[in-house]
Amino acid sequence: MNIFRFLGDMTHLISILILLLKIYATKSCSGISLKTQELYALVFLTRYLDLFTDFISVYNTVMKLVFIASSLAIVWCMRNHPLVRRSYDKQLDTFRHYFLLLASFLLALLLHEKFAFQEVLWAFSIYLEAVAILPQLVLLQRSGNVDNLTGQYVFFLGAYRALYIFNWIYRYFIDPHFTRWIACVSGLVQTALYADFFYYYFISWKNNAKLQLPA
């Protein structure tokens, strides 16, 4: 495992911790898209089926379990916690995420490394993760103001994707057999989706101002 991959995993973990902190400390999930969180839970559940079939390392297994447990906990809180669920911006979270599910599934049926149950679901999880942030970005854009923790959450999530690209570039040169086209192309698409957000994030950081997205 190279440093980019490790830092990518860590920023991913930090983003989830920031989201948990926001929900726990403020008992509020305002600005957070339940649809994006549900898609992430599905991404982890379908991708990490290999927990039952392949052992890679203790690190891998622990991280997978943490991602599954934390994503399910976030969805549960947003749906069921009496205080948290009242703060959910349901009227702003209107992205038609079923289209993302359907498109990702059809693409996985067409493009996969091997036509097998687990491999098709793996490809599905890769495609779905690439677009799962869209409901969140749309919600932020519609609400305009982004609170500090929500802004940091999306920033670290984007940083995780960018670091994974450096990880692939590194692997490509170190290991010439490394060809993960599905993951790499989807990862590029996924990172590109953050470009707009990053732009406004850095402007607000440079001006030391509150993060605001144009309507």
Binding site: H12, D50, I56, N60, K64, E113, Y164
Partner: peptide
Amino acid sequence: NPEPEVHDEL
């Protein structure tokens, strides 16, 4: 085509 290896990334 080589067999896909295990998915070692998260």
